[in-house]
């Protein structure tokens, strides 16, 4: 029994690492179609990664060991986060190792290392990117915490697997506070993953970029790991969203059979396809905000999440 959960955990992590670039490629493809262009192939992201691993790394003379190790730390934290988030099943050994608040701490660790590494070389754009990354981070984190508190109030736990199990026990209930929280979560997801209202993943203008400004000095395998890690981060955020708001199909404690796992994989893929297309649509329909408007955008997300909490307290619903 114990061995089966370990194998399942391992499979979940491998699946997350393998399909994260695919998810990024799917969003890029949807975006291209919505801009009336022919799209690059789905496996374009993999080709880019393979090419980057084949190249020689060029490093600035001022690079410290921190700069060299950061890609591995970032990739490691994102893999660990993927192991904690119950994307396929809830009875995973790692899923109980950390609750959602520790998960936010894990993402914050990754952000601190990325910002330090961006400042390490000493270029103006890297430092600017680090500052902006921290600004968006400290605005997005409280909003994300509030979103999670909504779910905690509903199901009485801070562990993601218990949230999924709690939801599965009452699948027909749609709580109004969850709707507020879901909208706030999507706004946080857009901000945290360098998506369009806050940052433009396709930009080449140094003065407007946030996330990519921190990666400007990285090349070859280091860049590949960082790109892969940011793909994993997006995948992880999507999976947190699925666990909180759309947990249909995730194999719960009761269901140990192989069919439940197959269903959960199919459900995850279907949810990713829809979420990717929706994300691309949101990005195509909105314009990038000026950096000074980012606090307003994230304050709005925070406000929505707090409204969700208030609605919950007013209605006094408790499901678990």
């Amino acid at each position: 029994m114990r061995d089966i959960t370990v194998v399942r955990q391992f499979g979940e992590v491998v699946l997350a690492i393998a399909i994260a670039p695919l998810f990024v490629g799917w969003i890029a493809q949807c975006r291209a179609w919505m801009q009336n262009r022919s799209a690059p192939l789905l496996r374009q992201t993999y080709r880019m990664l393979r090419k980057l691993f084949d190249k020689d790394a060029a490093m600035a003379a001022t690079a410290s060991p921190l700069f060299r190790t950061t890609p591995y730390i970032l990739f490691g934290t994102m893999v660990l986060a993927a192991a904690i988030i119950p994307s396929l099943a809830t009875d995973l050994p790692f899923a109980h190792a950390a609750d959602a608040i520790a998960l936010i701490g894990l993402f914050a660790t990754a952000r601190v290392f990325l910002s330090l590494a961006a400042m390490d070389i000493g270029t103006a754009f890297g430092t600017m990117g680090a500052r902006r990354e921290m600004m968006v981070g400290f605005l997005a984190e409280p909003a994300l915490l509030m979103v999670l508190f909504n779910a905690f109030l509903l199901y009485g736990s801070t562990a993601l697997p218990s949230l999924v199990d709690g939801y599965r026990a009452h699948p027909t209930v749609i709580d109004p506070s969850a709707i507020f929280a879901a909208v706030a979560f999507v706004m946080v997801l857009l901000a945290e993953n360098a998506r369009i209202p806050i940052d433009n993943p396709a930009t080449h203008l140094e003065l407007t970029m946030i996330h990519e400004a921190a990666l400007l000095e990285y090349s070859a395998r280091h860049l590949a790991l960082l790109e892969w890690a940011s793909g994993l981060k997006l995948f992880n955020y999507a999976c947190i969203g699925f666990a909180l708001f759309l947990p249909w199909g995730i194999a719960t404690n009761g269901a140990d059979s192989g069919t439940a796992l197959l269903i959960s994989i199919a459900a995850l893929l279907a949810k990713l396809v829809v979420a990717g297309a929706a994300l691309a649509l949101v990005e195509s329909l909105s314009a990038k905000l000026r950096i000074f408007r980012a606090p307003e955008f994230l304050a709005m997300a925070f406000l929505l999440a707090v409204l969700g909490l208030l609605v919950h307290l007013l209605l006094g619903t408790k499901l678990a």
Partner: peptide
């Protein structure tokens, strides 16, 4: 632009020489 669409063929412009081939 969408007519020539160099990104559709897998070629893209990047922001840093470190990322370039």
């Amino acid at each position: 632009n969408p007519y020539y669409n160099i990104e559709g063929t897998g070629i893209k412009f990047v922001a840093s020489p470190r990322h370039a081939d």
